[in-house]
Structures are given as structure tokens and as C-alpha cells.
Amino acid sequence: MVDYLWNAQSPLQKELVAGRHGVTAGQAGVTLTEIRGIMLVQVMARRGKAVETAKAAKKLFGVEPPSTPKAVIGKIATLIWSGPDQFLAFAARSADSQFGKLAEVFAGIASLSDQSDGRCLSQISGPRAREALAKFSSLDLDDTMFPPGATATSSVDHTPVNIWRDANGADGEAVFNLLVFTSFADSLWKTIVASALEYGLEASSAHAE
């Protein structure tokens, strides 16, 4: 009998070329990293159950989901606001049945949809990250207007995206997370790379932790 291989493929398998791109002199102004192996679950409170949903989330994650556009780090997941009374639960994909656990806790309270493969996650950082982002995002990503923990549901190239800001990196620079629809990932990666070529771009792929 044949042994079938079920290798997960990233939508960026072709377009992501690891290494330095664009201007080569000096330090890369932008670092762009695909984050693979993610678990992402859309949690939408049922009608009249927003408070229960928050309570259930608190029990499971140790934090209440954000009620305004923010991302909060919980025990086993980061909760990212994605609309009124809904959020995305994001974590590194693990062997155990994460979706099953969530389904249990939110049964009858919130509706869930597994989006772990429906999105592609990238991280953008570096001293020129904001300048690159400004080329394809109409959001005000100024340090005080979009501080660490801020999040937004917005558009890039007329396609929906989620953006949220982590704590600054070890180099003190801002770190942005960009979640795009899987089918658009190839196209948007090209847009992001093009925006950063003049600053020098370092591209890579990493696993979610």
C-alpha cells in the first residue's frame, strides 16, 4: 500500500525567497518573516452572549477578549479584536486538539470557525518598516497612534487584512503582524517586498512559537 505524504505547503512556497533583497548596502531596513504553523480560530459571540463569551475566554485564556481594536496576550493564545463581539484566537499550532478545546469552552455561547489555513501570517519589523508599510497601508501607524497592542482590520490592495503590533523587538524597533487571506498571500508578499526594496529587505520563514 502506498504511503501518502501530507506535507503542508505554504502559499508563499514560490514567492518567498529567503535572504537579502533590494538595496544591499548597510543593514536591512526591513525584516519580513513568514510565520508558519499557526492556529487561528474566529470566535464570534452569539446574540446576547457577549458577556458569557468574555467570561469563557477569561477562563480558557486568562484574559478577556479585547472589546476595542487591541490584541491581548493570553495564557495559550493571543486574542486579536476582529470586529464587534468577535476576535481571532491565535497561537502556535500544536499537536493537541486546540480547536476542540475551544469548541468545548464556547459551546452554546459563541460560534467558532477554524481559520488556521485561511490566513497567512507575516511579521514586518526594522528601522524602515513603517515607511514600507505606508506604501500599501492607509492606516496611521505612528508610534503613538498605533502603539504596541493596537490592532486594525483594514485593506491592502483592496483585500482584507488584520494588522496588530507586538511589543518592540530586541533592537527597539516596532514589530507589526500582518494577517492576509491565503489565496492573496502570493500577491501581497510581492507588494510588500516591492515596498521595501529601496530600504534593503531581509526575508525569511519561521515557525510560530
Binding site: 446576547g48 457577549a50 464587534p84 463581539d85 468577535q86
Partner: peptide
């Protein structure tokens, strides 16, 4: 303003 049924508002 949001439509009355945005989010999980119960009417």
C-alpha cells in the same frame, strides 16, 4: 452608527 444587528446585540 452601527446597524442594530452588528456584533452580538440581542434585540
Amino acid at each position: 452608527t452601527a446597524a442594530p444587528g452588528a456584533g452580538a446585540t440581542k434585540l
